[in-house]
Structures are given as C-alpha cells and as structure tokens.
Computed example of a mutant assay.
Amino acid sequence: MLYGITAACAALLLAAVLAVLLRVPALRAGLVDRQGRRHRPRPLPLSGGIAVVSVTCLVAWTGEWTRVAPLGDGVGRLLLAAAAVALLGLVADAWRLRARVLVAGTAVAAACVVPYDETGAGGGALAVGWIVFCALAFKGLDHADGLAGTVGVVTAFGVGVCAAVEVMDGLAVLLCVFAAALTGFLMHNWRPARAGLGAAGALFTGFLLSSAAVFTRAGYALAPTAGVLFCLGAVAGADFVLVVLVRRAAGRPLLRRGPDHLAHRLRRLGLTAQGAVVVLGAGSFAAVLVGVLVHAGWMGGSAVLWVAGGAAVAVVVLLRVRVQQPRRTASVQVSGRLRVRSG
C-alpha cells in the first residue's frame, strides 16, 4: 500500500516534469499535432504521450525489478505489448500510417496478451476485438484538450478497483501508477494545452485499460463480462459509435479527424470547451462506477442496461446536433472542363 502511494506520487511528478522537458525536442523533431494545427495559434508538441508511456513503464518495471511490487503473471507481457502499441502510435505521430497498419499492429499486440486459458478461443477472439476497439476509441477521444486524459484517469481508477477486488495487486499498482502519470500530463493538457497526448499516448491508454479490464474479467461468464467492459469504456465507445455513424453516412474516412465528436457537439449546444470535458468526465465516472459495482457484486447486472440506455440516448440526441463538416477542394479536369470537387 505504501509503495503504491509512493510510486503514484513519483509517477505524477515525473510525468509533469518530463512533459515539459520534452516539449522543445518534440517541436524540433516536428512531433506536433498536425491535424489540429488549424485550430491552434501555435504548434502543439506531442510530448505528453511520450512522458506518460515512459514514466508508467519506468516506475512499473522498477517495482518489478526490485521485487517490491511484482507485476504478476501476464501483466509484464501486457505492459510490453502496450509499449509496443505506443511505439507504433509514435511512428504514426511522426509519419503518416495507413489505418489498416494501426489496426493490424494493435490486433497482433492484443492477441499476445489475452489469457486464452481462461477466456477460451471464442472469448479470446472477442477480447482481441474489444481491445482494438478501445485503443482506436481512445485515439478518437483525443479530440479536445484534457478529454482523453480525464476519461483515462477515471477509467484507470475503476479498472484498478476491479483488479484489487480480484487480488491482482501488481495490476492494481500498475493502473494507479498509470492514472498518476496521466494526471501529471493533464497539468499541461487542460485548455489551453501546452502538450498533447498524440496517437502514442492515446493508443497506449486505450490498450492498457482495455487489456487490464479483460484480465480482471477473465474466467467470468461472457454476458456479464460484456456488460462490465461496456460500462468501463462507455464514453469512448459512444464517441466512436457516433463518429462511425456520421462518417459512414457522409462517406468520409473513419480515422480522419473532423469536428463531429461528442465534445464538438456539446460545444454547439452552448457548453464551453472545459464544460464539455467536465460533462463527459462525469458521464465516464458514472458509467465506470456502475461497472465497478457490478463487477464487485454490489449491484445487479441489470444496472448495465441503464448505462447502455443513457449512452444510446446521448448518441441519438447528439446526432441531431449540426456541426460544421470539414471541406477540402481539389481541381479536377473532366471532359476538357475545370470542375471543383469538395470532399
């Protein structure tokens, strides 16, 4: 217990300091938020994701190496796989990668960490799909200052409590360290952001949290497990579903950033940028709390239906909020005449 508190405090301070120290190197290397540059007065360095990943791995492996806080069976492999996914995201931050490469790489990493002896082959395949879904959902959730970090901290504490209930002490400590590192990063990511999470940090967040949740639910029945996992990832999942519906209907690429996410639509309803993050953070807290209580047996499984209903209502209502869609023009020569095409 004492080590967990000490490790969390160290992770918070180290992440806060490292995010600042890496700002200038990130700017010089061109590691900036390219897709969001139009909406910012100056480039946003993606030093926060590197700081969160580095500090989480450093503190967790220090506990493992000193044997003060061993990670436990499979948890070390989980952390290595999450770091590999973060490295893939870092490549995507520095250079453009096809969406299929991100999906395939994340799926391979997920396939390496799922405990098939407890989930079975069919359950393991579903778990891999869930992990990939959550990793991409958190990447999409990184569309507003402070949002992905806030939801990540709330979810990390929730999954950490589930791990503690299952007496997975190493996993619980890892999640506390990760939540603390994210909190240190949030000191620089609250609007106006001075450091960004980037694909590296967002994919790492979604992968680590979803994989840890799968670990805590391994061995349980499939239907209750699906309900708990849904609650733990409700906000990120709702955002992903909303974006998929809108972009499929408009015929636009799914992984290209646009002003059609949850926070964008809440702002169109009159909320401030900070207010939208607070509302979504509160929604995440409520959903995660239900998931934790159901997992611990302190609440019936039917409570998941309330979370599902709330998420469905939010998606349907916000679908009706009109947002300004991105447009790009290109000159195309057709039949000897010059036409303008918008995409």
Results as ranks from 00 to 15, higher is better:
4 G>C: 07
4 G>S: 14
4 G>I: 01
5 I>S: 06
8 A>E: 00
12 L>S: 00
14 L>H: 00
19 A>G: 13
27 L>I: 06
28 R>K: 15
30 G>M: 13
31 L>F: 03
35 Q>F: 04
37 R>L: 15
38 R>P: 01
39 H>G: 06
45 P>W: 02
47 S>F: 00
49 G>Y: 04
51 A>T: 00
52 V>N: 00
57 C>R: 01
57 C>W: 05
60 A>V: 10
61 W>V: 03
65 W>G: 08
76 G>V: 11
84 A>G: 08
86 A>P: 00
89 G>N: 10
91 V>Y: 08
93 D>K: 07
95 W>L: 13
96 R>D: 13
96 R>M: 07
98 R>E: 13
101 V>C: 03
104 A>G: 04
104 A>V: 10
109 A>W: 03
122 G>F: 14
122 G>R: 08
122 G>H: 07
124 G>V: 02
128 V>L: 06
130 W>I: 07
133 F>C: 01
133 F>W: 15
143 H>A: 09
149 G>S: 11
149 G>W: 01
150 T>Y: 01
151 V>P: 01
151 V>R: 05
152 G>N: 01
153 V>A: 02
154 V>C: 05
159 V>T: 04
163 A>C: 11
164 A>S: 14
165 V>A: 14
167 V>G: 09
173 V>Y: 03
173 V>F: 02
187 M>C: 12
189 N>T: 05
190 W>M: 09
197 L>H: 02
201 G>S: 06
206 G>L: 07
209 L>W: 03
211 S>M: 00
213 A>F: 10
215 F>M: 14
218 A>F: 12
219 G>Q: 10
222 L>E: 10
223 A>T: 11
225 T>L: 10
225 T>N: 11
232 L>C: 13
237 G>E: 05
237 G>Y: 04
240 F>A: 13
240 F>M: 15
241 V>W: 15
244 V>M: 13
247 R>I: 10
249 A>K: 12
251 G>E: 11
255 L>R: 07
257 R>F: 08
259 P>M: 10
261 H>G: 09
263 A>S: 15
264 H>L: 09
265 R>T: 03
265 R>E: 02
267 R>V: 04
269 L>C: 09
271 L>M: 06
271 L>A: 08
274 Q>R: 15
275 G>F: 05
275 G>M: 04
279 V>Y: 08
280 L>A: 11
281 G>H: 06
281 G>Q: 08
281 G>I: 07
284 S>G: 07
284 S>H: 02
285 F>D: 02
285 F>M: 08
288 V>K: 03
289 L>V: 08
289 L>A: 15
291 G>T: 06
293 L>Q: 10
296 A>K: 07
297 G>F: 09
300 G>M: 06
306 W>P: 04
308 A>D: 06
311 A>V: 08
312 A>V: 14
314 A>H: 00
315 V>P: 01
319 L>F: 05
320 R>N: 09
323 V>T: 15
323 V>K: 01
331 S>R: 11
333 Q>R: 10
334 V>W: 12
334 V>C: 05
335 S>N: 14
335 S>V: 11
340 V>Q: 12
340 V>R: 12
341 R>S: 12
